[in-house]
């Protein structure tokens, strides 16, 4: 798993954008958590966007890290959002229920086939 960061301004708010690449399972969950944590600490940014376009696999270990960051952001009055998830990753995000608390962009392939509404 690789992760790179940037800051982007959307409207009036500044978002910390984390672009993640590769597989997120228990082998990298600790590293994933730590890298997000370190960047969130130094950036002092209360909005986190996870760009998951290049994530090829995720299981409950990776989803647990996202839930943990959501709780942290929510406690500070911040927001977290997910963009670019591929179909398999998106289905896991739905199965975990994270879509109920985190804004997640729907994969184009799914709304094109009518599996989900745009």
């Amino acid at each position: 798993m690789q992760i790179s960061f940037s800051n982007k301004k959307y409207g009036n708010s500044v978002w910390l954008v984390a672009k993640i690449k590769g597989e997120i399972d228990m082998a990298v969950a600790g590293d994933f958590r730590q890298k997000l944590q370190d960047k969130m600490d130094i950036s002092n940014c209360h909005n986190l966007l996870l760009n998951m376009r290049d994530v090829t696999f995720i299981d409950s270990s990776g989803l647990g890290v996202i839930l943990g960051r959501y709780r942290q952001m929510a406690a500070m009055g911040g927001k977290i959002a997910i963009s670019g998830a591929k179909e398999n990753v998106y289905r896991l995000l739905l199965a975990s229920g994270l879509d109920k608390i985190i804004q997640i962009d729907k994969p184009e392939s799914l709304w094109r086939t009518g599996e989900v509404k745009k």
Binding site: R33, D59, S60, S61, L63, G64, V65, L67, G68, L92, A95, S96
Partner: peptide, 12 residues
């Protein structure tokens, strides 16, 4: 920080 979803994913 574990979601307790391991078995839930296996069964679904």
């Amino acid at each position: 920080e574990h979601m307790g979803l391991g078995f839930a994913f296996m069964t679904s």
